[in-house]
Design a protein around this nucleic acid. Structure first.
Length: 198
DNA sequence: TGCCCGATTAACT
DNA sequence: GTTAATCGGGCAA
């Protein structure tokens, strides 16, 4: 999948076709893409891949009320409650039925900094979106956004227009399949939720 | 119905 | 480094 811009130089909007591929192709291709919600957001610098054959995935046990969106078509938001406190945003991938998704773990803030600081209650730019729960608080994403299409407002998702230096490592905060290197990040970014071990 | 636990975070020592 | 906060999902009973 080419990550370049359109002929007219404008950033390309990511649609379902972008997501209808292996979650392990989509995840690294998302690094560097711009994710906005109501105009607030920035550059994706850290994501993780999940798939229904993966014991760590919510979809591993089969379709339930909570994970139903994961089993639907690609290009939609799956939002779930984490630890009874936080919200986490996933982008559904692969053809319908794969129940695969990419977890958004960290964003480099570029738009709506004032709103993010107000919502998060912190001033440090590095603490605004460095973690899946922080991303949702900064962008004000909750269960109300579960099932929304990613290629239309209030979401806006734009492809990166240049190659990125991607680093890979084990996923964070899981106990099952913890050895799988399905965490992807932008090399050298100061906005990761945790550093990648060399 | 009850119990256990989690794709987390912030505030501790 | 450790731990409390906080609550819905999933499953056993």
């Amino acid at each position: 999948m080419r990550g370049a811009c359109d002929d007219d130089g404008m950033a390309r909007r990511l649609t379902a076709a972008f997501f209808r591929r292996s979650v392990h192709e989509v995840a690294p291709d998302l690094i560097g893409a711009i994710l906005l919600f109501d105009g607030v957001g920035g550059r994706l610098v850290e994501v993780e891949a999940y798939h229904h054959t993966d014991p760590a995935a919510h979809s591993f046990i089969g379709m339930t009320q909570r994970n139903a969106v994961m089993f639907g078509p690609p290009g939609y938001a799956y939002v779930y409650r984490s630890y009874g406190i936080h919200w986490c945003l996933n982008l559904v991938c692969e053809p319908k039925g794969s129940a695969a998704a990419v977890l958004v773990r960290a964003i480099e803030p570029t738009a709506g900094l004032t709103a993010m600081r107000r919502r998060r209650g912190v001033a440090d730019k590095r603490l605004l979106c460095s973690g899946p729960g922080r991303v949702c608080e900064a962008l004000r994403i909750t269960h109300a956004q579960n099932g929304l299409a990613l290629d239309q407002p209030p979401f806006e998702l734009l492809a990166r227009n240049e190659p990125m230096d991607i680093v890979v490592g084990p996923r964070i905060g899981i106990t099952k399949a913890a050895d799988k290197p399905w965490r992807y990040g932008l090399k050298g970014s100061r906005f990761l939720s945790k550093p990648f071990r060399p």
